[in-house]
Nucleic acid binder design. Structure first.
Lengths: 346, 346
DNA sequence: GTTAGCACTCTATTAGGTCGAGTGCTAAAT
DNA sequence: ATTTAGCACTCGACCTAATAGAGTGCTAAC
């Protein structure tokens, strides 16, 4: 399984060249551009070996070689160095966050647009889950005689709202009272526990206020029937049009229609295994999502106070500049964690 | 300027045929498919006239004719009938709104996806402007010792939130007090008036609470420094890939990169002249947005209580099925107005 | 005013031919 | 035993010419 030194160099040269040119690379090119000190013929032999081992393949007989998924995998795991982000890139990233950012949605959207802009790939950012956050504040705001707006705020700064229809019997004072009771009972409780354990306590409390009892219970039920879905943001879909592998319209359509589905985006982000390194590279057929077999994804998570609350990722062709992409995703997530800490951390 | 009866029929036939086949249409086709009772030669003469008048044009000498912008304009204004929406379509639209919709963002997003789904074009939906709404409720929710969440609710049910950094000196009670003052002074006031006239009153009120005066003024300033931009939603961008006129990747890219910019989307929606009919069709070069000269847009507005609060639109090639599209956009906006009224109207 | 007939124009498609990049193999050189 | 030079071979990319077909405009007859 372990390749000798020269084979590594050849493989590396092939991959580097292919990444930058998108053309199958021949023995001659390698001998000329990458100074290995051997002739094309020798390289041809090495390439034949590499092909037999499955690291590269030939589109057709009289063409150069192209890395296979296995080849890329080897490159990512063993060959590529760990690059440091350039000062210029760092400048773009830091400058991309406008000073006045003050709400989570905007932070995530900006992150996303910086990420896709700087990598030239498509990027995804997933926001915090509501389930793992704690309730900070809940309020019923009367809109008119039979409608109220429900506001629910979590301690990670997420806000949800919806319209609630009011029974005739309920007035503004009642709403205020119900809000108070909910706040008193539910503040600091994690959202996924609320339903199970605490409704009863409120129930008891409410029975002291008989006249609005029934209506109030219904309203509380509905107030807490929140949308638990995380938000996913997508940016830079256009970038795939710059990739020569997507000159084919059918492919573009297939990929774009996948990326339109939030479900798929979440799948992509969750399929990465971030347990150990924090950053995960999934290459070609390794992708579990159907239709993504020609793509690679790089995903990572971000944290508040050490707790993982969301993830970001980029999607590109398997012919991706892994070295640069990994380094940027790494920097972006750590920076995002920092921002999150400043805004929402303790 | 007014065409004789037969010319109208010929023009209509050409447009109908071209809309459905996307192929230049010849005299023979028309004579065969559309029973005008005359021979191809006669139709050829009529076509030559129509071309001279600018209603149709020839891609090249030995091809059929294609409608020009002027031709489409005539069709839209004079030739096409007013179609009634089919029961099937109505079913899809009504069913597209899930029962549980309770917040404005979701309503608009669903509207958008129904619209693009049913027309097979790209659709845009623009939400209410904040400026024209009245403030209903404002609240500062403490998150931790030096951060608070600002909530601002308007009477059209829009919610905005952001994080505010607190000076050391301010405690929870102060926040509550400030919220109260703001509510007392600002409820019911239109958002675009708030800055100019009312800060002073709050100023006076606050001077009674000396110890937090400076901090409070700053915070109120920042609280009311809202993002006044309307939200714009985009859906069905993929649909343009189904249009034969967008088989060319460069075109796709041009259009998609336009549609990525919210500014452009708003321009499209605002360029329509909805004053009279409520629905506006803009054809090809009539579009003011650069790069949209091969597209047509159909836009309309929706209302709450007779007041226009937002607009929707669709974008497709000039070879658009105007009859169907107009009818659907019309139905959708009137239905959306109805929904809005139920949720947010008086 | 309408129609049939016909020559003409222009594109799209196909087939054939050439070019060139790159390979694999063999035999000589190191 | 490894490396290299040389060479025949393969196969896609590109160009060219030829052909087919759709549709027109014009003319002359109806």
């Amino acid at each position: 399984m372990t390749l000798d030194e020269r084979k590594k160099k050849v493989l590396q040269a092939i991959i580097r060249d292919y990444i930058s040119t998108a053309e199958p690379v021949g023995s001659r090119t390698i001998a000329k551009k990458y100074e290995l000190g051997v002739s094309p013929a020798t390289i041809r032999n090495e390439m034949a070996d590499l092909e037999e081992l499955g690291y590269i393949e030939q589109p057709h007989t009289s063409a150069g070689r192209v890395p296979s998924d296995k080849g890329y995998r080897y490159y990512v795991d063993c060959l590529m160095g760990k690059k440091k982000i350039s000062e210029q890139e760092e400048g773009i990233i830091l400058g991309g966050y406008k000073a006045k950012v003050k709400d989570m949605g905007t932070v995530l959207r900006q992150t996303n647009s910086i990420l896709s802009g700087i990598t030239n790939y498509t990027s995804i950012v997933m926001g915090p889950q509501y389930t793992t956050s704690n309730l900070r504040y809940v309020q019923l705001v009367p809109l008119d005689s039979n409608k109220a707006l429900v506001l629910v705020v979590t301690d990670s700064g997420l806000v949800q709202n919806k319209i609630l229809e009011l029974p005739q019997s309920v007035n503004e004072v009642d709403l205020q009272k119900i809000s108070q009771i909910m706040n008193a009972k539910l503040q600091g409780v994690s959202l996924d526990q609320i339903k199970l354990t605490l409704i009863k306590e409120i129930y008891d409390e409410l029975s002291k206020h008989k006249h609005i009892f029934d209506a109030a219970m219904d309203m509380i039920q509905e107030t807490l029937d929140l949308n638990h879905e995380e938000k996913v943001y997508l940016a830079g879909t256009l970038n795939i049009l710059n990739q020569p592998e997507f000159r084919d319209l059918t492919r573009v359509r297939t990929l774009l229609s996948l990326l339109e589905q939030d479900k798929v985006l979440k799948e992509i982000l969750n399929d990465g295994s971030h347990a150990e390194t924090g950053i995960s590279v999934t290459i070609g057929a390794e992708n579990r999502v159907d239709g993504l077999q020609d793509c690679s994804t790089i995903t990572a998570t971000y944290q508040i106070d050490g707790r993982t609350i969301g993830s970001v990722g980029i999607i590109g062709p398997t012919r991706m500049d892994y070295e640069k992409a990994v380094c940027i995703v790494e920097f972006m997530t750590s920076h995002l964690s920092k921002i999150m800490k400043d805004f929402y951390g303790h």
